[in-house]
Amino acid sequence: MAKLKISLSIILVIFSLGVFSQSAQWMVSSDNAKKPNPLEINPKNMAVGKNTFSKSCKACHGINADGKGRIQSPSLISETFQKQTDGVIFYKITTGKDKMPSFKAKLKEEEIWSVINYLRVLVNPSAVPPAVDVKLELSADDGQKSITAFVHSLDSTKQPIQDVDIHFYLKRDFGLMRIGEPANNTKADGKVTVNFPENIIGDLDGKVTVIAKVENNFLYNDTESAIGRKWGTALVSGDEKFNHRALWGGRDKSPLWLLFMANGIIFGVWAVIIYVIYNIFRIKKAGKIFIK
């Protein structure tokens, strides 16, 4: 009986593994499979694709899309995956199956197509021209409370570079909080300005670090720059109730009246005992003198 159970479960496991590895089992109608990708592979679309990938796909499929993420998932750079048409991949991303969630509501169609393009480029990096290095400089306007990023070429001529998407962040304890518009592209003078949001809490002095990044960009290599300003409200590390002295507080937080009373009783009782003993000795001494 037990043997039968074991062999049955082995068969089941093999069967289920087969289902996972063979993407052919996930049936996609030919209409959907033939759906053409409306986006061309260009650096701008690729940036959208890479941003979307790192936001929505990276956690499970891994940073290199090799399936080594937080859960075991199919590799997106394998031959089996890549031989599917764009239409098939689009259908699978939108509908989802088992552990793969449906991204229909989460992502725009154009973002999904961009991700597909990005995955195509991952196995074929020569499809986009190599990226170049740029320099990113930050300046702050204290009156307007705004940050201006200036992107220019590395050489001494400081040629301004137009149309670079800059991501602005505020540094927080566990991560970076995005500020500014969804896309902050540099203008003809290579500059773009974002306003500092209101109601931001800084450190104890109200100091906030703003970080600007060129990232996930296929024309320019990643670079970042940071600037600190006292524009936030000062952090008030709370006068929390649980830090007050209370009857249920720990050793170090017991109420003062309790400490006085408990220790007073101990001291009082001991004082009486010591006083009595002292007097007993005095009586004994006095007795000796009297006998003499």
Binding site: K55, R172, F174, G175, R178, N199, I201
Partner: peptide, 27 residues
């Protein structure tokens, strides 16, 4: 460790929490 964007963690005084999966930080 969460693969499904379930958890946000942060500092109350700073009024910011960070998602453990996407790394996105929100108010």
């Amino acid at each position: 460790a969460c693969p499904n964007e379930v958890y946000y963690f942060g500092n109350v005084y700073e009024d910011a929490v960070t998602n453990g999966t996407t790394g996105e930080t929100v108010s």
